[in-house]
Design a binder for these strands. Sequence first.
DNA 1: GAGTGGTCTAGACCACCTC
DNA 2: AGGTGGTCTAGACCACTCA
Lengths: 242, 242
Amino acid sequence: MSADTRATYARIADELRKAILSGRMAPGDAIPTEHELADRYGTSRVTVRKALNVLKGEQLTVSRQGKGYFVKKPDYSRYVMTFAMFKPEYAIRYASMAVVAAPEDVAKALGLPGGSDVILIGLAVLDGAEAVASADTYLPYVKGFPTIESVTHRADYPKFVDRKLWSILLRCELRIGASRLDSEHARRMACPESEPVIFARRLIRTDEGRAVGYSRYYLREGYGELLAESGYTASKPFGSEA
Amino acid sequence: MSADTRATYARIADELRKAILSGRMAPGDAIPTEHELADRYGTSRVTVRKALNVLKGEQLTVSRQGKGYFVKKPDYSRYVMTFAMFKPEYAIRYASMAVVAAPEDVAKALGLPGGSDVILIGLAVLDGAEAVASADTYLPYVKGFPTIESVTHRADYPKFVDRKLWSILLRCELRIGASRLDSEHARRMACPESEPVIFARRLIRTDEGRAVGYSRYYLREGYGELLAESGYTASKPFGSEA
DNA sequence: GAGTGGTCTAGACCACCTC
DNA sequence: AGGTGGTCTAGACCACTCA
């Protein structure tokens, strides 16, 4: 009786979503067929499909041709994490900026012959006066391409990358481990050596697999924790609306 | 001239995707209008919309009503990570299983009064003979609900949760830091004390925010690294197909 | 063969943006 | 006012599954 301004597909999706999230429909359960939902809501099959696709985008359902739609089993082992390294509240102090011979692990990660020239950008992340993180970024040294100067104007390396220098299709791999702080980075951050830190390495590659950047990160306790989220909330940011 | 068995919308999506990923269309660029694409491919607007929604689900485009579709700026600071703790190639050895008074951090995380009874499940993860990880899981002790016995039959806690004991709507938060191994867990894993480890804490909550589980994880170097991925590949698992 | 989801059409009207 | 995307219809045919 009340004026319902919402779209029909959104109403259908809302009611099904509520039934799933409340547990009224459990993982594996069949969802009413498209025809039945179309009849029940007095709408067309296309509209019902749109509602069901919204739920599919939210990772709540799956469909199998010839069988039907089913409530999906959630995957609590998949997490969404944000890692930007340079939080806005922190400052950056450059420690080194040079063309150097690539260390062995760097050459291997970047797929370069041992000892190739690479650009090294070393920096510390400061929370006030205290250094809470340290990073070494290595870029393949290609004449005339990403110059040191262009990099220095973009403290945040991935943002620099976004500026169409490379195509949109980049993939980042982040490997997270724990380590003791070595003497070089302890000195850079002026903190006790052998302190336990998060040791993360990020490899940036193009879609063809060519490595275009490699970074080592050392995160002290003061930097904060890496926060990852799973479950329904995690799927939302990637979900489609239609 | 060749028989094209693919669906029309898939072909349109493929060509647009290629244009975006190759850099031919850059972030911020406008995508041809629905009408233009419909004309160009000799198909209906509905089919074109389906193709565009596929790309939207892949996080490659955004649409703004009244304006058009645009190539989206990628977000390389969002990562997708898998963390299941119990890899199939590893074995599990239980170290303790008891009802205990909740330690302070556990009580706080679970939102219980200090000293409340909680179920503690301590275990080590074994790679052959060597312990590579250790976990302490705490569950609120509710009479007759998740009993110790039911938990022991499900080494993997989230899987146990999936069995409809709680609704599908759970959220996991994983906080990742680095720490030194304390004496208790060093003893449990029979390894040197003060070894640097990944120290992760996972909090599981219902959609209403009620905490239903809290775990502390200690991951040694031998456990392996946590791998997180970003970029186009990362958005795929969550993308919608329509 | 009956029922299911997957694809597709040729229109329609609305909401929003820009000029 | 004209163009854009957002919603929706009432059908159609195809591909797949299962009895």
